[in-house]
């Protein structure tokens, strides 16, 4: 067991991807596994109670799922689809990001803390005090900074990965949800759900460099920005709009709206294919995923999921 994990880790990029889409279903207590090439559901895994945050290990041999009501992270083998183990992860884990060194940084929503967890040993490396209702987690490209948003405190906390301490705090629009870094690590973007805005923050100064507060006015009044991803070429930001039922495509520098792609009801979690041509978006109230062609900028299909899909991860 240990050997095979090591072997896969060493094999790194040589490991053949499974091309599977993994979807956490918050109300379905399940993980939907879909072959991204055929669109067929391969399996529905009963993963545990209230699955939300989802992400792959650096070697892509494991998919991790945060189980809010079990205070644990489920570890699922991406090939066998077995639930290998559940790791205690502090109170009410919601969202997380996986560091290149394998450490999981996660937010504990009702404890006002972030936890650094080693998934191999199951050891909690640090508990970091942050604001109220911590949510989105992001890791800079060089692995030195971890960002955690706190929804009720309206902040992004910058945490040093080396000593696991908060080094800076940025006040942003009400109810910050998720973050995305630029490939050079100089900027990050953050969605604010209640403020209805997307901000670009300069990491050198920790100040807001640009903000778009017009999404609700220009798209529709139900817009609540949630998920955010940067395209692999760095030229587009994709933002899921919750009950705005669409994906906004923004210019990463000016944050101007370049396109609005209709999706399903209460669209949240996003995943992009490695080549950037396909965007997958979880429609929470429709129990499906929108498949979006990013060249044509339109939805080309829907894939069924379990009840209330929350997040998406793609192993390609």
């Amino acid at each position: 067991m240990k050997f095979s994990a090591l072997f896969l880790a060493a094999a790194g990029l040589c490991a053949e991807p499974t091309h599977r889409l993994f979807v956490s279903n918050e109300a379905g207590d399940s993980l939907t596994v879909i072959d991204s090439r055929t669109g067929k559901v391969e399996k529905t895994v009963a993963v545990g109670d209230r699955p939300r945050g989802i992400g792959l290990s650096p070697d892509r041999s494991r998919v991790y799922v945060a189980l809010g009501n079990e205070n644990a992270i489920a570890v699922v083998d991406t090939r066998s689809l077995d639930v290998v183990k559940k790791i205690p992860a502090g109170s009410d884990p919601e969202a997380f990001a996986v560091h290149g060194d394998g450490t999981i940084y996660l937010s504990n929503e009702d404890a006002g803390s972030a936890t650094a967890l080693d998934p191999d040993s199951g050891k909690i490396l640090a508990e970091i005090e942050v604001g109220i209702e911590p949510e989105g987690v992001g890791i800079g490209p060089d692995g030195k900074q971890v960002l955690v948003t706190s929804e009720s405190t309206n902040m992004v906390h910058v945490i040093s990965a080396a000593d696991k301490k908060v080094t800076a705090n940025v006040l942003v629009g009400a109810r910050p949800r998720e973050v995305a870094f630029s490939p050079d690590g100089k900027y990050f973007w953050v969605t604010s759900e209640v403020a209805g805005e997307v901000a670009k923050v300069d990491r050198a100064t920790n100040k807001i460099a640009a903000v778009n507060k017009r999404l609700r006015r220009e798209i529709n009044r139900r817009v609540k920005p949630k998920g955010i991803l940067l395209s692999p070429d760095g030229k587009r930001l994709y933002v899921s709009l919750g009950r705005g039922n669409a994906i906004a495509v923004l210019n990463p520098d000016t944050l101007a709206i370049e396109a609005v792609v209709p999706a399903g009801s209460r669209v949240w979690g996003l995943a992009l294919s490695r080549d950037g041509t396909r965007l997958y978006a979880a429609n929470g109230l429709d129990s499906n995923l929108s498949v979006i062609d990013t060249l044509a900028l339109k939805e080309i299909g829907k894939l069924p999921t379990g009840e209330m899909p929350w997040g998406v991860a793609l192993d390609d």
Binding site: G131, S152, N169, L171
Partner: peptide, 10 residues
């Protein structure tokens, strides 16, 4: 109390 959680960071 919650405002002071926010305040603590700034």
């Amino acid at each position: 109390e919650e405002a002071n959680v926010q305040g603590k960071f700034l």
